[in-house]
Structure formats: structure tokens, C-alpha cells
């Protein structure tokens, strides 16, 4: 049903020169670098202290130096020195922990995005589809100044999408959706890598991120000449696979109606409740009996093996386009 994937383009690494600190293409990237510099500072201080002491002791207390050594440190002084060293160290560790965690929480709980781009990883390429249906491989075009969410999965093994210029990385895990969100502040071409070892051509699974101004991005999309949007493609699939036979618009006789479903809370046959998200919809297509909605018979067949990961994402986009239970897009 799904067409074979085109061959990935030849690798063209963006020519950036050696950057010990990569481009800061988002505000978040700059924030991570501050943390990095702070940690470098703390480490440098501790190393200087340690090496300083070792060198001073090595010179003063070398066995050839015939100076009276004085008594060793008493047990009570030992404890005091240890505590005096460890307490400030632990406190600074806790401070760094708090700092790093705050950034991480920001990264994991982003505001609603302006645009959601689907990314499917496979051995050994990144397949990207934009909301308007435009597809690309190993290259990711994004608009500057907009909050871009990536909805990531893998169709075979675990991969990991790394965008160094955005200090961003998220694994692509089969059977699971992960997401990564960033807001590019700088136009230009940056690097994109697979960071999780994924087999023979792992090192060739790299490409580039191209940040364009909003106007250029729109123009670029138009040049791609996508026939239908991602949601429309999903809608066509919905017809073709026969989903619409039971999930009829406005009717919830045989199967739950899908309007306004995304983001809503649904009661299941076993009495538990579930928030309908991408993962739930994916599960319901692949394993419909797993979390059956209360009041319905387990009659839906599994579509496992009949739809590709990209097609499932298109179906999700379609269901999302039917309304989203009051949540913003």
C-alpha cells in the first residue's frame, strides 16, 4: 500500500568550520550554554584547587625536604574538614541540579506549537512530512521565529534525532511517539545527526536543518507542490481503508465518533479513563482491543502491517483536523 521509500540524497555536511560551541540557533541553546559555562567554571575551580594542593604538598612534603612535619591531623579535625568541603560542594551541586532540571522541564513541557512536523526514522534515513503534505528526506526545513514541534517515531530500530545548534536530542522509538520542540531564532543551515547507534549506515544517517524566514518557508513549501495536506491525505486513507464505514461522521452507533476526540478523556470498557493523544490513536489502529472504549463491541480489526508509520501519522492529523476537544491546536 505504501510506496517504497526513495533513496536518501548524498551526504552534504553544512560547511560550518570547527565550532567548539556550536551555533546558538535558539534562545534555549544559549540558555544551555550558560549552564555549560557555569559547570566549566565550577569544575575549573575544583581542579585548580586540587592540582594546586597536590603541587604544593608535593614540593613541601617531598621526602628529600628535611623539615619537621608536625603532627598529623586529629580525628576531630578530619571530620570538620570533610564536612566543610562537602557541604558547600553539595549545595552547589543542588543548585546546578535545580538549574539543569528547570531547563529540562521547560524543554519537556512546551507551550502549544505553531507548527507540527512529523519525523519517521528508519534504517538509515529521516523521513519528514510537513502539515501541508510536503515531504523531504534527511533535511528539515523550518520557519524562523515559530515554535516548531517534531512528532517523532521510528519504523524499525531506535534512532535519535540530534540537532546540535538547538542543543536538542530525542530518541525515535518504534511503537512510541516522542516530541521535541524548538523555536529557531537564526536563519541558516545547521547539522542534523542520528545519535543512537542503529546499524550499518548509522554514520550516514545525517543531514541538515534549514531555517528559513517565514516567507521563504512558505515559498519553499509551495515549491514542493504537495497535492494534498497531511490531514487530507489522512482523510483519503480513512476512506480507502474503510474506517469511515463504522466511524461515520456524526454517528456513534458501531464505533465512537471521532469529532472532537483528540485531547478529550474517554472511558474504557474496563472502567478506566484515558486521555486521547497520538499514542492512544496509534494503539487503537494497531491493537484496537487493547483499550476498548466503553459501550462498544471489540469488532474493529487490527491494521497492523497494513499502514506505515507515516500513514498512521496522517490518520492522526486527519483525526486532529476533526476538532480537538476544546484544546488549542
Amino acid at each position: 500500500m505504501s510506496e517504497p521509500d526513495p533513496k536518501p540524497p548524498a551526504i552534504e555536511d553544512p560547511d560550518l568550520g570547527l565550532q567548539l560551541i556550536p551555533d546558538q540557533a535558539s534562545e534555549y541553546a544559549a540558555a544551555v550554554d550558560y549552564l555549560y559555562f557555569a559547570l566549566l567554571g565550577v569544575s575549573g575551580l575544583l581542579l585548580a584547587l586540587l592540582f594546586g594542593l597536590v603541587v604544593v604538598f608535593a614540593v613541601r612534603f617531598w621526602h628529600g625536604v628535611r623539615r619537621e612535619r608536625g603532627p598529623g591531623l586529629a580525628e576531630s579535625r578530619e571530620r570538620r574538614l570533610e564536612i566543610g568541603f562537602v557541604l558547600p560542594l553539595t549545595l552547589s551541586f543542588l543548585g546546578l541540579f535545580y538549574w539543569a532540571t528547570e531547563l529540562y522541564v521547560d524543554l519537556y513541557t512546551p507551550a502549544d506549537p505553531d507548527i507540527t512536523i512529523d519525523v519517521v526514522a528508519k534504517q538509515w534515513m529521516w523521513k519528514v512530512q510537513h502539515p501541508d503534505g510536503t515531504r523531504e528526506i534527511n533535511t528539515l526545513h523550518v520557519p524562523q521565529g515559530e515554535a516548531v514541534a517534531l512528532r517523532i517515531t521510528s519504523q524499525d530500530v531506535i534512532h535519535s534525532l540530534w540537532l546540535p545548534a538547538f542543543r536538542l536530542k530525542r530518541d525515535a522509538v518504534p511503537g512510541m511517539y516522542t516530541s521535541a520542540q524548538f523555536t529557531p531564532t537564526q536563519t541558516g543551515t545547521f547539522r542534523l545527526f542520528c545519535a543512537e547507534y542503529c546499524g550499518t549506515d548509522h554514520a550516514r544517517m545525517r543531514g541538515k536543518v534549514v531555517v528559513l524566514s517565514r516567507a521563504d518557508y512558505q515559498q519553499w513549501l509551495a515549491g514542493g507542490a504537495a497535492g494534498a495536506s497531511r490531514a487530507q491525505e489522512g482523510g483519503q486513507l480513512f476512506q480507502r481503508l474503510g474506517c469511515s464505514g463504522c466511524h461515520k461522521p456524526g454517528s456513534s452507533e458501531l464505533a465512537p465518533a471521532l469529532e472532537g476526540l483528540m485531547g478529550s478523556t474517554t472511558e474504557l470498557a474496563d472502567g478506566s479513563e484515558v486521555v486521547v493523544d497520538e499514542a492512544y490513536i496509534r494503539d487503537s489502529i494497531i491493537e484496537p482491543q487493547k483499550q476498548l472504549v466503553a459501550g462498544y463491541q471489540p469488532i474493529m480489526p487490527s491494521f497492523s502491517g497494513q499502514v506505515s508509520e507515516e500513514e498512521i501519522m496522517q490518520l492522526i492529523s486527519y483525526i486532529q483536523s476533526l476538532g480537538n476537544g476544546g484544546k488549542n491546536d
Binding site: A31, V32, L35, Y36, L39, S43, L96, F97, W99, A100, T101, L103, Y104, L107, S160, W162, P164, R167, L168, K169, A195, E196, Y197
Partner: peptide
């Protein structure tokens, strides 16, 4: 550095 969550996201793997 690696225990620090946000930094690890960048330098992991």
C-alpha cells in the same frame, strides 16, 4: 555535566 539534565540532552550519545 552528564547528570545535569539539560546538558545531557545535548551531549548524550
Amino acid at each position: 555535566f552528564l547528570a545535569a539534565l539539560a546538558l545531557d540532552v545535548h551531549v548524550h550519545d
